[in-house]
């Protein structure tokens, strides 16, 4: 008995892995392949941008940007289906809303230090409220839950190209400005003293965060996207000595969490977003426990 239990567990594990591999190759369920590929590719942007967000401690700013995305999605859907502007994909609305929110939130965080949390909290809720109102006025076309909690059925080949383009932008900016962004994140005042326009770099980081959030909303949804942005970086940050290594660790962790979460959700027929987030949260708790030993 004592030997059969591990054997059967291992066998079940092997079967599950085979099932996932088979599903990835199956022409009948391309969305699963797309989701898997999108998750792995997006991990690059998520690992890099997430590292900046965690290191600079601006998770709540990123959270506000993510929630404002719903406003853009709602407006996009309304324009597309109620006004008849058929070319206006909700993704465009999401991108505009996210970048606008990033700039407003960035300027508020720079200039309105005393009321920063209040203003950002208000923007957070306002963005969602606008989105829900537009969605309510676009009946029959959309299920808000898809955007709030993610739905891998919505992922298409176009999303893969978009994420590849985003990766190119994020990696190029990081390579060009690595030391400057490091200095601004570590000591904004000193960076200014050395002639860097720290406000520009702050806004640049928020805009990158906005782009990353928009493209990943389809997998994990608006509510949970911040967890996937911050948890892999937080896990990597418990062990990394430099920002560069933290980025590499975060990319690896994000790939691991997304693929594991998607695999578990496929095998057990669970919603993919929450499963990925729980895998990431479990890993973060384990990393904290290990690092405190």
């Amino acid at each position: 008995m004592t030997t059969t239990v591990p054997d059967s567990t291992a066998a079940r594990g092997r079967t599950a892995v085979f099932e996932i591999i088979e599903a990835l190759g199956s022409p009948d369920i391309p969305f699963f392949r797309y989701a898997f590929l999108l998750g792995l590719l997006a991990s690059v942007s998520f690992g890099i941008v997430g590292t900046y967000v965690v290191a600079k401690r601006i998770s709540y700013l990123a959270g506000a940007i993510a929630h404002c995305v719903l406003g853009g999605i709602g407006a996009g859907l309304y324009l597309q289906h109620q006004v008849g502007i058929s070319w206006f994909d909700p993704l465009y609305g999401a991108l505009i809303a996210a970048l606008l929110a990033a700039l407003i939130i960035g300027l508020v965080s720079i200039h309105a230090k005393q009321r920063e949390d209040t203003v950002i909290g208000a923007l957070w809720a306002t963005g969602m409220a606008i989105g829900l109102l537009f969605i309510a006025k676009t009946p029959g076309y959309v299920e808000p839950m898809n955007y709030l909690f993610g739905n891998i059925l919505l992922i298409s080949k176009t999303d893969i190209w978009l994420v590849l383009s985003l990766n190119l932008v994020v990696v190029t900016i990081t390579l060009l400005f690595y030391h400057k962004l490091l200095a601004v994140c570590f000591d904004e005042e000193f960076a200014r003293l050395r002639g860097l326009n720290s406000n520009f770099y702050h806004l640049l980081l928020l805009c990158l965060t906005a782009l990353t959030v928009v493209l990943l909303v389809r997998i994990v949804g608006i509510i949970m996207v911040i967890a996937l942005l911050t948890l892999p970086a937080a896990v990597a940050g418990t062990f990394a000595r430099t920002l560069g290594r933290m980025m590499l660790g975060a990319i690896f962790c994000c790939m691991l969490f997304v693929s594991t979460g998607l695999g578990i959700s496929f095998i057990h027929d669970l919603p993919s977003g929450p499963t990925i987030i729980l895998v990431a949260a479990g890993a973060y708790l384990a990393a904290l426990a290990v690092s405190r030993r």
Partner: peptide, 27 residues
């Protein structure tokens, strides 16, 4: 004032004193 969890080495911190002296941003 520094974040105790920030991942940066001693040499990286000292190198920040050289910021603004490079045309391309890499040390």
């Amino acid at each position: 004032y520094y974040d105790p969890l920030f991942p940066v080495t001693v040499l990286d911190v000292v190198l920040m004193g050289r910021l603004g002296l490079q045309p391309l941003g890499w040390y």
